[in-house]
């Protein structure tokens, strides 16, 4: 069970209090009524689902109720950081990424 830092409560809380809410930084187009089918497809249906570094949304549903974003490694499940909704996508440094990598295979 993950331990997640809520950037609003400023506390580490157990995963039980949170709901995942999908990929982060997908803005709803301001002129949504006028976009093309291809643009709508990209906005609504297409997701990265990356193995490795992911930016994702969480909601502290059974807590403060706020949506926020997280940078996490999807293999090691380790968080690099969490940040408030609306804040810019953080630049992830090599060191930060290295600190959350899963262990390389020991033998071989």
């Amino acid at each position: 069970m993950l331990l997640i830092h809520c950037p609003y409560c400023k506390e580490d809380r157990p995963e039980l209090e949170f709901h995942g809410a999908g990929e982060a930084h997908i803005a709803r187009p301001e002129n949504i009524a006028d976009i093309s089918d291809a643009e709508f497809e990209k906005f609504f249906f297409i997701r990265e689902n990356q193995k490795g570094l992911v930016f994702e949304r969480w909601r502290h549903l059974n807590g403060c109720g706020r949506f926020f974003n997280a940078a996490r490694h999807s293999v090691s499940d380790k968080f690099i950081c969490t940040y408030k909704a609306g804040e810019a996508k953080p630049e992830i440094t090599e060191e930060q990424l290295a600190s959350v990598l899963p262990p390389a295979r020991g033998d071989k």
Binding site: S76, P102, P103, A104, R105, G106, D107
Partner: peptide, 20 residues
């Protein structure tokens, strides 16, 4: 815990190597 093992040839066993 997702730690990785290594094989200890001399003693015929797997032992902890890299911690996760």
């Amino acid at each position: 815990s997702r730690g990785k093992l290594k094989f200890d040839e001399a003693n015929g066993r797997f032992i902890p190597d890299v911690y996760a």
